[in-house]
Every structure is written in C-alpha cells, then in structure tokens.
Amino acid sequence: MRVGLFVTCLVDMMRPRIGFATLKLLEDAGCEVVVPQTQTCCGQPAYNSGDRAGARSLAEKLLAEFEDCDYVVAPSGSCAGMVRTHYADLVADDPALARRMAALSAKTYELTDFLVNVAKFEHIPGNYAGHPINLTYHDACAGLRELGVKTQPRALLAQLPGVTLSEMPGAEECCGFGGAFSVKFGEISAAIAEKKCDSIRATGAAAVVSGDLGCLLNIEGKLRRMGDEATRVLHIAEALTEFAGES
C-alpha cells in the first residue's frame, strides 16, 4: 500500500529524526512510503486562530498533494486530527470538494493508530541490547479526544521486551501547550506544564513519551527549566525505533 508521509511543519523544523523514525516504522510495516516535497503545514494554526480562509487554502493544498495516496500518515495526533475531523467543515460550502475532502479525511491516520489498526504491525523488528527502560506515556489531547489514540501506542511499546510502562496520574490531562496559547498566555501555559512535569517525575520513568511534538517541546522545555536534566523526552516514533534496537 502506498502511504503518503505527512511530516508536519513542527517535525520538519524541530525534530527531523522523528520524521525518519516514522519513515522507518512505516517501511518496516511493509508500506511503500512517498513524501510529497511541496508539503508544508496542515493549516491548524490558522484554523485555531480564526483564519478559516488561510486554513482552507492549506487544506486544499494538502488534498492535492496526498489525494492519490492509499493512506496519509502523520507522526502527530494533532495534525492528523485536523485533517480527519476539521477539513470537511472547512469546505462544506462546495459539495464536490467536500466529498473529496471527506475521502482524504477517512484515509488519514495518526502514526500509531495506522500501525496498529491498518498495517496490523505486530512485530517491530529489532535486537535491542541496552538496559531495560521504564517509560511513561502522555496522551496528547487531539490524538486522544479527536482520534481515540489511547491503546495503540501502548500496544506498540508492549512489543518491545526491554520496555516497561509506568502510567502517570492524569496522563490524559493537557500539558498546557495549546499551539499559539503557549506564546499568548506563556505563564498559564507553563503553570499547566509544571503540573504535567510533576506527574511525569512522580513515576520515576527514565523517559516521557508522547505522540505530538508540540507537547514534547513544552514538556522538555519545562523539565529543563525545573532543573530536570535526566528525564528524556521522546516522540513515540523515536521510542519505538530506539528501544527496538537495530533491525
């Protein structure tokens, strides 16, 4: 199956290695992966800021880039959620376009949801030889509440013999990122992040893992400012490739 990788703007700029880890997981799962070179952003920043016209133009751009793929996969519940749950609303006034958009939405997946429920990826290849590691998982809001991503990343982590998971209290609570919220209301955002970081640290896990880079940058930034240099902050794609070992 031909899978279009939507890298997301944040991964493109901040953490390319998440993009490559995603690419590896999709290829290991047997997908033919294409990466349209003109892709930029799903338009969520515009949509959430009240700029529907800007969001719509980017939705139409993404449609043109990925329409011919069997599936579209993003290493982000937030971006996949934007395509899946909000794109149709943006073009509701154009029935023909809305039909095409609905088809795109239906075949767009967050990475772990795709690996578990579409690719049925049951054996992550690898020969991890490092120390056993204890992780904790933060359920990013959009993935959890827009797409139902909850058991999928945990099922994938459970395939890795070296990994144990210590659940934090309030794993489903927001980390305080909220896109532009984090720079418009920096103090409130950081205060929410602090509670999340306290919960993470209470588990004693060596690393916190999540499916959205926005949350991870927020959490990492807060942990470091709190003086925690030890807790690693990893995207689920990084965790799944690193703790599988070489394949």
Binding site: D12, M13, M14, R17, V183, N218, G221, V233
Partner: peptide
C-alpha cells in the same frame, strides 16, 4: 535549549525552548 526567545518571549517566561536539530527534514530527506 534557548533560555530567552525574543521571537516568542512568553514561551521562555516559565520554560526553556528546546533547540532544533539544525537542519530541516526536507533538507535531510533530499
């Protein structure tokens, strides 16, 4: 990490801004 981010000063009021890797995925993928 960035301690004070002039572009988005509110971010770094209460937390650091993790640094990017340095190249974009697009560049590396090419």
């Amino acid at each position: 990490r960035i301690r004070v981010l002039g572009l988005a000063p509110e971010w770094t009021l209460g937390r650091d801004f993790p640094a990017p890797e340095g190249k974009t995925f697009r560049e590396l993928y090419t």
